[in-house]
């Protein structure tokens, strides 16, 4: 009886584990230090797959992403710093390989454009709102002669 319960339990567990196994097509790496594993997660999330372009190497199944993950693992185990690893990748695949390219040269536009566009938008809003106030307050802009004429016209309209 006890044996049967154990078997049932194993079967249930097996059913739970099975679908997980089917999903894990991306290989896993063993790290000598948990800190390396978390850096691996971080870096593989930040490095962009050169082939698939809109995926990072952690998510991609492309052969090149597999190679880069393997390389990342090797370099982490060899004690390379994050900066060294990123530089190594950039030297070979260009600034493109980073999802957060460094602030220099051509990428300056990329970093600054959102801020510049925001300022531009605010400027347009400010100018539009300022201009919109004027028609309301334009009564005072009439010359004395015009004011006089306006009063006469309104009087005339009242009589009719």
């Amino acid at each position: 009886m006890n044996m049967r319960a154990l078997l049932q339990w194993l079967l249930a567990m097996g059913c739970l584990v099975l679908p997980l196994q089917a999903l894990s097509v991306i290989e896993t790496y063993e790290f000598s230090d948990p800190a390396l594993a978390s850096r691996y997660q971080e870096l593989s999330g930040e490095l962009r797959c050169p082939k698939c372009q809109n995926q990072n190497i952690a998510d991609s199944n492309a052969p090149i992403a597999q190679d880069l993950r393997k390389l990342l693992h090797q370099q982490l185990e060899q004690g390379a710093s994050d900066e060294e690893i990123l530089q190594y990748m950039v030297d070979r695949y260009g600034e493109f390989v980073r999802y957060r390219p460094r602030f220099a040269g051509a990428t300056m536009l990329l970093w600054l454009a959102p801020g510049v566009l925001l300022l531009l938008g605010l400027l347009i809003v400010f100018l539009t709102l300022r201009d919109r106030k004027q028609p309301g307050g334009s009564e005072g802009d009439l010359s004395d002669a015009d004011q006089q004429r306006l009063r006469e016209l309104m009087k005339k309209a009242d009589k009719e």
Binding site: P50, P63, I64, D67, R92, Y93, G94
Partner: peptide, 12 residues
Amino acid sequence: EGTLGLDLGVYG
């Protein structure tokens, strides 16, 4: 092993 390919930045 694709080592030269890696140094060249080959991605396919």
